[in-house]
Design a protein around this nucleic acid. Sequence first.
DNA 1: ATTAGAATTCAACGATAGATGAAATACCAG
DNA 2: CTGGTATTTCATCTATCGTTGAATTCTAAT
Lengths: 209, 209
Amino acid sequence: MTSRPRGPRPGGPDTRTAILAASREEFATRGYDGATIRGIAVAAGVDPALVHHYFGTKEKLFAAALELPFNPGDIFARVLVGGIDGVGERLLRAVFAAWQDGGARAPVMAVIRTATSSDKGAEMLREFLDRNVLQRIAAELAPDRAKLRAGLVASQMAGLLMARYVISLPALAMASDEDIIAAVAPNLQHYLSGDLGRPVGSGDRRATL
Amino acid sequence: MTSRPRGPRPGGPDTRTAILAASREEFATRGYDGATIRGIAVAAGVDPALVHHYFGTKEKLFAAALELPFNPGDIFARVLVGGIDGVGERLLRAVFAAWQDGGARAPVMAVIRTATSSDKGAEMLREFLDRNVLQRIAAELAPDRAKLRAGLVASQMAGLLMARYVISLPALAMASDEDIIAAVAPNLQHYLSGDLGRPVGSGDRRATL
DNA sequence: ATTAGAATTCAACGATAGATGAAATACCAG
DNA sequence: CTGGTATTTCATCTATCGTTGAATTCTAAT
């Protein structure tokens, strides 16, 4: 109703940044398709055309919103310098820390939402994960089925983030970080350095290599 | 181009069923928002208005498409009658079997896609899971942190289905069922009947109760 | 003061979506 | 043969979306 006058906002805060912040929030809660330029503009207190003025297309805005303040592959690399022992626990702590510091939350939720919302989104994430994370993790591991190990770790981490933060499953959302670390870390460790158990042949289960 | 004549299809197959099948496929690959009535109609070889004629609104069609040929809670109950021992492996086998027989694939993928595509979808799945699955699983377990255990199992299963089937992560998509069962079953078993490890206090890790 | 340019809004276009009501066709009971 | 009814398509309405180009206002340099 009360239409703002045109022209620059005098002494206002950085509008471009406001748009970016609003888009992060919208993409995170609604996914790529669900978020609208108009909705982002309203959330930023701005005209929709201004969004295009700064970012061109919706896709470019999405790419800008996904700029992570860190590289997922790096996290694992840093976590691994302490040795393979206890890496499961350190990985969980690093991820929880990154989540709580706030920088990771919106982009990661946006990626999850978008990746699972269509075949196209899935393809994008598959390539990103495979190139920037899995191969990276696999490279740091002992060559014994390294890619399978990395994939299993990714599946558990993705499921945990999804259940705890995206779906907000009460049992996991209400549990403390420490409870979850205590329960999940040994399983991650099993994927990373345990005996995966040949399907036909044997080998004793669960001995740490 | 070649517009079909109006009126009933002579001797044709059940059109209603064809629409339902097409909608399952579309919802599964594109999610609730991504799937369009028009697209479903084309896939079913039918006019869009016919979809409304049979199912009313898009939401009702979605509900009809999600009718599972089984109850997820029942699967776990059946799997558990063999005793707590080896329940992780039997659970994985049951899920893989249900997946390959085809009845579960489309609905489950549609649910995953929709649940992760927006806050509203997440809410729907949270309530469904909590009421129809988690509480059910928790009821069958020893009372020691049963809900946390159920949530952890759900997180691993969801992550596995997502990574292997929705994202099609190569490392997991290419691995055999047996490989995955051998690797994952012990972890599920740990969540279900293992020592979750008090965060502060100790208790030796990984002893099966 | 004047002017150049950046910031912002306005108004509208074209595409696509879900939905609706009426018209046309085929089948079946009498 | 006649009439009713279920099945199917057609044409259209309304809403919303991404996008664009012009108009307006502010700031800063000349």
